[in-house]
Design a binder for these strands. Structure first.
Lengths: 336, 336
DNA sequence: GTGATATATGTAAGCGCTTACATCAAGTTA
DNA sequence: TAACTTGATGTAAGCGCTTACATATATCAC
């Protein structure tokens, strides 16, 4: 095995010098540096990251937690984080929590055990209070797409209230005046904020939404399907439904097909996320787009900036805004 | 900071004993063990994985390489790998190659630097010869969904030739006799095998496929769209098209919509993968399903079994078979 | 009781690095 | 020229673990 010592012997210098050319090259004489670099090259030496980490107490690695890998929702954020870190020579250690509180805790501990210099985590199950306890100057934790009370400086997230308002404004602008909404679980802060935003804008226009027309669901296709069936059964009147994500909207498409309801002529549907499926649905799903990759990227950069204590690395805003991705699932009633 | 030494002092034993209760508890007396465990608990001690790795030359970590995270294709495999490893107390260190040869090389080296005990990699760019050079008894490398010559024992993959045959048989069974095919890049072994399988079965039925009706594309939605447009321009006759993945098939849906061609009445479409979008397309895309999560799981298990030299961990077959996931995009011509 | 065997624990030498500190040569100042 | 910088390099002490080996104690056959 080729170690620092091997290189130092071949190069005829001390191990300290070799270590210096690796970590603080400016402190080594040009000629010596070249000799060492040649030896490294020749031997194909690669530093042992564990020895490095043990000695320096830093791993050049940032741990990331997501619910699971098999959803592009997390995939886009992960790609964003990795992209940001690669630029700075940092590695991503990604772990999934498998959507359980226990998984989130375990992943958190395990990433800390692995000496991650910082953490970028997306969590749903742990409470703000539990999360705040993990915060620690030595090892910054960035909360990705979540606002954690008492850790707002380390939270990167979408302005979900504005996004809800945007959804309402958009539908109003298209002439709709009577609505339904299928939300995510109330335990998710996103759901609550989106709901509040949506309702508040309606209120501004003196429109109220029937309590029965707000259904709490679970972000799944099946959940969306079930919710739509329930809404139909109630026989309440509405011309547009706002779904808190595209999967649920896709479930609604299926239910509509089965009930012979045409989108958007009989019912308008507005999704959320701009997931991959949104463009493949027929008609194309109009949806509130959130910049997931950007959010991931920002989270990565924020982690680095906190870690290195260099504010210049992360300059932008911690709050992201959603936009409307217009396709064909919302009818413009004004044009009738 | 709480270290092994802290625990040993509190428990009144040597560090060796503490280390033993952590790694080989049966070698420690019941009473001593309890005392130590209590101390660990009380102090909230967590072993430093870097020190552990340095001393033991093992990291209990398996490195995984995928093209990127933002595709469920890789996501499902990743989830599969992680699921398998978690059972055995191993961690997943996932890195993306960003679909470049350089990225694949870098990721490979970087995971080795990080002392991964084994690697599970999905690569497209590196050649069999390059990959074989990385193989090494000390650190097994499993090739996920790829057959690498000279490393067949470490390759877990779909039987793409049979899958191609299955595609042909299915379409034949539905009464089709005239075909087109849109393949993935020829540089991908999957594309070649699927093509060969497809053609060979047709040949068995004395059917040939016009060279112009086989189009090489790139696995993207846009690629599928373009390919269909090209096929239509040629004015050749065919009733069914076999696409090498669902994204391309989705692109074809779009092209059909624009050209006013009805699926499946005017043209039948068969996809590959059973991606998430397949069920959301209208009509539902009939597709050749490959068990990605299973392939990931098997890869993880194989890596563990090679690593620990315990054949019993990985028992199954290294070759997976595709199945038909039937939806509504293939017309049954017999029923006319 | 003796020697052999098994079981439990401790001692201490690393694992491959980083880095504070020491050393030394060469240049600078008055 | 003596005293002081400065820059380049070396020495060696860890970082927090694991583990081969040594030691101590208990058990057992005879």
């Amino acid at each position: 095995m080729v170690t620092l010592a091997t290189v130092s012997k071949v190069a005829g210098v001390s191990t300290a010098t070799v270590s210096r050319v690796l970590n603080q090259p400016h402190k080594v004489d040009r000629n010596t540096r070249q000799v060492v670099e040649k030896a490294i090259e020749k031997l194909g030496y690669r530093p042992n990251q564990y020895a490095r980490g043990l000695a320096s107490k830093t791993s050049k690695t940032i741990g990331v937690i997501v619910n699971r890998f098999s959803s592009t929702y997390y995939g886009f954020m992960l790609d964003g984080v990795e992209e940001a870190l690669v630029e700075y020579g940092y590695k991503t250690l990604a772990e999934s929590s498998r959507e359980t509180a226990e998984g989130e805790n375990q992943a958190l501990l395990s990433l800390i055990d692995r000496q991650c210099d910082a953490l970028v985590i997306h969590t749903n199950k742990l409470t703000d209070i539990e999360l705040a306890q993990y915060q620690n100057k030595a090892r910054p934790i960035v909360f990705m797409n979540r606002k954690v009370q008492a850790c707002e400086n380390e939270s990167i997230y979408l302005d979900n209230k504005s996004a809800g308002q945007l959804a309402a404004s958009y539908l109003l602008q298209k002439g709709h005046t009577s609505f339904a909404m299928v939300t995510g679980p109330k335990s998710y802060h996103e759901s609550v904020s989106r709901t509040n935003g949506f309702i508040s804008t309606l209120k501004e226009h003196a429109i109220t939404i029937d309590k029965d027309c707000i259904i709490e669901s679970d972000f799944t296709v099946q959940g969306g399907y079930d919710s739509l069936c329930r809404l139909l059964k109630q026989q309440k009147h509405f011309t547009a439904i706002f779904f808190h994500n595209d999967e649920m909207a896709a479930g609604a498409y299926k239910a509509c097909r089965e009930h012979g309801i045409a989108i958007p002529s009989q019912i308008s549907i507005l999704g959320f996320d701009d997931a991959v499926i949104a463009s493949h649905l027929t008609p194309g799903l109009t949806t509130i787009e959130q910049p997931l990759a950007e959010i991931g990227r920002a989270s990565g950069l924020l982690a680095l900036s906190l870690l290195k204590n260099k504010p210049e690395i992360f300059q932008g805003s911690k709050l992201f805004t959603a936009t409307v991705k217009e396709r064909d699932s919302v009818k413009d009633i004004n044009r009738e």
